[in-house]
Amino acid sequence: MSFISIQDVCFSYDEDSAAPKAVDGVSLDINAGEFVTIIGHNGCGKSTLAKHLNAMLLPDSGMVVVDGDDTADENKTFDIRAKVGLVLQNPDNQLVAGIVEEDVAFGPENLGVAPDEIRRRVDKALKAVDMYEYREHAPYKLSGGQKQRVAIAGILAIQPQCIVLDEPTAMLDPSGREEVISTLLKLNRENAITVVLITHYMDEAVLADRVVVMDGGKVLTQGTPEEVFSQVELLKKHRLDVPQSAELAYRLRGCGLKIQDIPLTQDDCVALLEEALR
């Protein structure tokens, strides 16, 4: 049984039934402990799908089941939100308190956790994202990457089993992106937290256990990064990027060079080319 099960979900922001649906018949399973990335164009429905995972939006048809609970069940809404944390794109708008540690405490305070336990959780969450030294800083004085890590700590303090991140690196500079992504990888590996990362950076997508490609509200294809990015033609047809090294290998193959695998990182690419050219 998967941790989150999305079953034939349709959702439209427009009341008009003729209008195109934001999410159009998506079925997807997310297993506990997995690192899944969802990629696609702007407006492909990936953000809308993310909001279905913690009952911020409810499907028009179909259903989303989180750890055995239907998200449409109003009595379970807050249980589901405590299990599946959602981190949004703009780090500024997610920090609600004037001091870092008080912001991280906001979630557990809402859940009515005892003060000592909140303190313990806040310290633990801040240490997990390497922001403990900044616990008494004002959020507006931090860099974008630091703010986003505080936002992640704010979700961690709720102690969710799964974190869904909706383009958390879209507003960050390269070093901020690096900070956030390495934090997520660490959380996934060391704390066994399920991560669903929505992004449009292909180099982030290749780090996942599984990549889901969405287009026009539907799932186009999914599989391991190797499986997905070797379908260069399909992705190109839907005007999606592939990692540069994958594209290089694909083109060279087209020119008659014998390359078996599709490399996803620069190092792999160099190694494969060396072998092919020898």
């Binding site: 911020m56 949004l88 703009n90 906001f106 305070e109 009515g112 003060p115 303190r119 709720i158």
Partner: peptide
């Protein structure tokens, strides 16, 4: 921004003052 902040607060289980506790007593 206000809309975003409200979403973020709901994501963190905010449901008004009832049943809230405080870290700093």
């Amino acid at each position: 921004r206000a809309y975003d902040v409200a979403t973020a607060m709901e994501c963190r289980c905010y449901r008004g003052g009832a049943g809230r506790t405080r870290m700093k007593q």
